[in-house]
Design a protein around this nucleic acid. Sequence first.
RNA 1: GCCGAAGUUGCCAAGCCUGGUCAAAGGCGACAGACUCAAGAUCUGUUCUCGUAGGAGUUCACCGGUUCGAAUCCGGUCUUCGGCACCA
Length: 970
Amino acid sequence: MISNYGEMELKWQKRWADKGLFRAIRDEKKPKFMVIFAYPGVTGYLHVGHMRGFSYADAIGRYKRMTGYNVLFPVGTHATGNGSISLAAKIEKGNEDMIDYLKRNGCPEEKIKDLTKPMNVVDFFNDVYVNEYWKRFGFLADWRRFTCTLYPDYAKFIQWQFRKLKENGLLIQKPYYAPSCIVHGPVAVDASETDISKGGNAETQEYVLLKFKHGDEYLVAATLRPETIYGQVCFWVNPDVEYVRMTYNGEKWIVSPQAFEKLQYQKDGVEKTGVIAGKDMIGWMCTAPALHKEIPVFPATFCDPNVGTGLVTSCPSDAPDDWISLEEVKKNPELKEKYGLSQELIDSVVPISIIEIKGYGEFPAQSIIQSMGIERPGDSKLVDAKKQVYKDGYHMGKMKANCDLIAGMRVEEAKDRMKEIMVAAREADIFYDLTEEVICRCGSKVLIKRIDDQWFINYADKDLTERTKEHCKSMHIEPTEYYNNVQGVLDWFRERACARLGNWLGTKFPYDEKWIIEAISDSTLYPIYYLISLYANEGRIKPDQMVPEFFDYAFLGEGDVEAVSKTTGIDVPTLKEIRDDVKYWYPLDLNLGGKEHMTVHFPAFLFNHTGILPQNMWPRGIMVNWYVTGKKKINTANNKLEGTKISKSKGGAQPIPGAVEKLGVDPMRLFYAHAASPFADVEWDEENVFSYKQRVEKILSFMDELMAMKDGKKSDVDDWLLSRMNTHIAEIEEAMDSFDIRQLASTVYFEMFNDFKWYVRRGGNDPETIRKAARLWIMTMMPITPHIAEEMWEGFGFEGMVAEAQLPEVDHTSRSSVTEYGEDFIRDVMADIQEIIKVTGMEPKRIVLYTPSEWKLQVYRKALALHKEGKLDIPTLTKNCMADETLRTKGKAVSDLARKVAQDYMRLSVDKLESVLGIDETEHLSAAAKFMSDEIGYPVEVYNADDEGRYDPNGKAKVAVPSKPGIYIE
RNA sequence: GCCGAAGUUGCCAAGCCUGGUCAAAGGCGACAGACUCAAGAUCUGUUCUCGUAGGAGUUCACCGGUUCGAAUCCGGUCUUCGGCACCA
């Protein structure tokens, strides 16, 4: 027994390290297997969930290692971006939450004060990931090759990669509208709020700016629904807002001050020329674009100067806000008075029905207002009403005949068409805005900014896409759903902005150093870099030497080695060695990553390989793993059991070191492997992990028992056990062809264990068989629970370490389905006996089994013979039996049995029938009678039905058929 | 909304591609028994319903279809989850 798991684990980790097992060294005589997991971002401590995918990679690597492959399993980290900048900034400011978080995860106090510099943060966590997570989990990764995206040598690689993209025509520049801090430049707006302090749910929306002419000025309204232009009847201005007069493109515009600020970031030559009070515009007449009709300007307080341009065109038929505000204007005499609007003018404004939506009346806005019971402007339900009617309109609506250029179109297409028409006629313009306020980490506003010379990787390139899609068909991608889906993902992938301006960590863009290469784009081709990082880490090559010619030679085999040596200053043998490594190890055999990578990293990873490297270096496999979710809780809202996301940033996640100490590495690895299919989320449940720990301990103590069996002898079950073991190994091989780690776990920790237990229960105790079988068993445990496997391996005194052992080929000669069936047969018979005892509630004095008469066996044998020829059916078998003199004398009994046999076995394998006939049941059951008596607790006797002297008061012998002996209990 | 995935017996979770050996693996929990001074220990059995003879009945979200036969194939419905881009 193991008294201290931690010590035991560390002991073996040290031995593996001392022996240098982690090192992957090129060996041309052996086939290679290169596996990575998508390296994690350095954003702080990881939690137990992250170890799931990482552990798969190690288990697969170990399995491959055991089955004859030379395995390269390198690791690294991804630190590009601003995660560590913001972490460092928080420490600097003494942010208590952050300091608390670090402490809670076991960061030593004295370390914390060092973490005020971003690079220190990166170095610190690199150390944590490697030592506290990966090494602690017993990974056999080639630590010498560790790399990080912020290392100077890595930067050289990325610069080369971008040069290649450019040379291959895959880098393009074009304008781009990106959320951008007014101080720091582009930021990422997403739910994790890595870059920002507020507004993670904001989305960028494209508005159409509609220009309403008034004199020589334009009132500019922003709309998401250009197709409603034909329904416009008036224009809304907020009387309480002071608007800005500005010039743009030789035109005079009026917009809200906020909109003016935003426009400055999106349009050139925008200038403020004055201001105008909203209330001064009330009562104006302006000309609507496209419609070319005069409409009046009315007051509306719902016009928010922060949204769009703060000016709104009114289409009451389809906009609930407009409808209700128009009603208000009509009903409210004060407004009339205040703004001097004539009754005549007001009366002239009537909604125009323009869109037909199933389930709505003539005026959709009116319908929804009535059904939701909204009565006045400002009602909070208006937000939902708007959403609903917009949504239904968009998907189900159809433009009515009065809509001129877009009449009869579905709203979906009318929208784009109308936009194009008006923009082309210079009656409209485009404008981008965020759906909610976004504030940068620095406290400044985030607005949408036009970037003219934004660099993109052109993933939309047709040729590249086709090539990549085609290649994916030949790849091994798990799960199958993703294999199918990736085709669509690759199609959907568009140009991707690949560089950023501002304060980011990362590699400088080689063609223009003001740009920093963006986080996704610098982590696509990197698996190949692990072949170089080894040399860089060992100081054999310096970043300065890693000029383009170096990579051209190393990766592409271009250039003359002597010349490259001269250019780079790297000696020829080293260059050749590197080139040989690349040729040997690449392509990557398996890239394993969480499901979040399916639409981002994996496609980019594929595209960069197919875009830069020759075809024989394109990746061979991808495996996607699902998550470990938080403990499920009852959601009181809907009374359902729901998992909660384990989140790095939000806390509440189980830190890894604590879990390791409490539960042990092997139980955790087993939990990851077995708790669910890799392609399903699994709940983190300590109780569950604990039960895996118990299973591991059970196996350990069971092994102790086996080791103690020194003087047993051979029996029938020995053959059975060895047959079972080989059958299981064949199963494992098949499962692991598709990296089915769960099946491996299931076979090894459950099925094999059960077989061993049965072996012992049946009296098996032969030391030679035990050693032989245990040897196989322990080896198959090595991928998932390597530490205890070593412990047992050593206990049995097997040579070397199991981590370097080779799993033998399946020994087909020792496999026998007849032998295996023999034990199933015993179990079935026992189950039948138990069933009878249970149902009758008897306290048996005597249990008698009857094996079937010879004539029945004859029928079965005939069935088998026919089955082998594929001719087993009822009439054929019956005829066949009746052709036999002795059988014919039995008459109906034979034909009845023949029918039953044919029916039962027609659709089953020949193998099954062969097994049933393969054993002599009388002999087999007699031999097992003692065992069964002991197990059941009552005496068991066995007779053959043809035995004249049998004890058979109930005539049970005659119901006996092969595989189903008659049973009599009294 | 679009795209994708899923709904299995108290819970977790296999099976579904390749229909029959599926009342449906395994684990957990529960129950009974064994062993114990004791143990979140271990072992054995049971765990949809009915049943004094190894059987029968009703199940794999719901409705319908294909088939001799469907948890598995097809169509539809409902529900849940994920992705929807500059975010690792």
